[in-house]
Amino acid sequence: MRKLILFDLDGTLVDIFDEHINSFIRMEKEVFGVDIAPEDMIKNIGHPARVVIAGPLLERGIDPKVIEKRMETAYQSYKKQLGKALKRIGEDVVLPGVFRLLEVLSQRGEILGLITGNISTVGMLILERTGLVKYFKVHSFGDVAAKRSQMIERAVELAEEKYGFTIKKEDVFIVGDSIPDIRGGKEFGCKTIAVATGLTKGSDLEKEKPDFLFSSLENTEEVLKAFGDQI
């Protein structure tokens, strides 16, 4: 049976944290008139975009109704800010080992999906700019679900609709660099593969008890074993 392998984007496949954080900060100032420190933005990275945007504002006492009313404007501002930054990036921001792993999994006929807290327009822009877009046939973004487990569930639904067969939970894997990735996978009931290439330390990821933990995706042979495969 073909496996559905869902990858997080930022910190798992690509390294563009600085671009993200700076774009969020500029957006918060433009839309809400609030200055946010980088460390306050970083605290919510790994969650859907709505949570990343709202978190620092709620901490500062901004009315939730005001945040919700301006959320679409915030999305558009964030897309504009990040779009400017992404003009300067390309395949160079793709993390080591990623292209080879995706190529091998694609050749083996596995279904590759993307799970990211980014809004859909931003997520697709990153895939296109980095040359990763050709590998992913299923996409679940942060503007369609509030929780990681819901994003995984949506990805499974999309894959079943696209390929016409039922996908069992034991054939679903999530690969991510953050605690929300691992917790979301466990809540959904799929296999979890943590990779310590993002902001979260390997020791902190280990505490979440993922099924597998790697320092990076560079060792293709070892990572494939997590899916029950070898080259």
Rank of each mutant, 00 (worst) to 15 (best):
E128K: 15
K65I: 07
Y75R: 14
D18E: 15
G97S: 10
V104A: 12
I152G: 03
G202V: 03
R108Y: 04
L82P: 02
D92P: 01
T197F: 02
S77D: 04
E72R: 11
G55R: 07
R50P: 10
R60Q: 09
E72N: 11
Y135I: 08
L217S: 06
R129Q: 15
D171K: 06
D92L: 08
Y163E: 13
S215F: 05
M27H: 06
D204Y: 07
S149F: 01
P96H: 03
D18V: 10
P180A: 04
G11I: 07
D229F: 06
Q150R: 05
I167A: 12
Q76W: 03
E59Y: 03
V34R: 03
K137I: 00
C190N: 03
T197H: 02
V51L: 13
R154A: 10
H139D: 04
E161I: 00
I126H: 07
M41K: 01
D204W: 02
T73R: 15
G117Y: 14
N44F: 11
K3P: 03
K79A: 15
D204S: 11
F24C: 11
L4C: 06
I16W: 05
I115Q: 08
A49E: 15
T121S: 15
V93P: 14
I193C: 03
E68W: 01
L101M: 06
I115K: 09
V31S: 04
G61P: 06
V51M: 10
I62H: 15
G117T: 14
L158V: 12
S149N: 11
L217I: 10
E187R: 11
A155Y: 00
A54C: 13
V34L: 10
L101I: 11
N219A: 07
L95D: 04
L127S: 13
D229A: 12
V31R: 02
K201C: 01
G131H: 07
K65V: 13
E157W: 11
P180D: 02
I21T: 03
Q76S: 08
K209Y: 09
G202L: 14
F99W: 04
V144M: 14
A37D: 14
V51R: 08
E28M: 12
E153W: 03
T220G: 10
L102P: 04
I53D: 08
L82Q: 13
L86N: 08
L217C: 05
L82F: 08
F136S: 04
D35N: 15
V93H: 12
G228A: 09
G33S: 11
L6R: 00
A226R: 11
S149P: 02
M124K: 15
K209H: 11
M1A: 14
I179S: 10
G123V: 09
F7E: 05
E103I: 06
G184C: 09
A54N: 09
K147W: 01
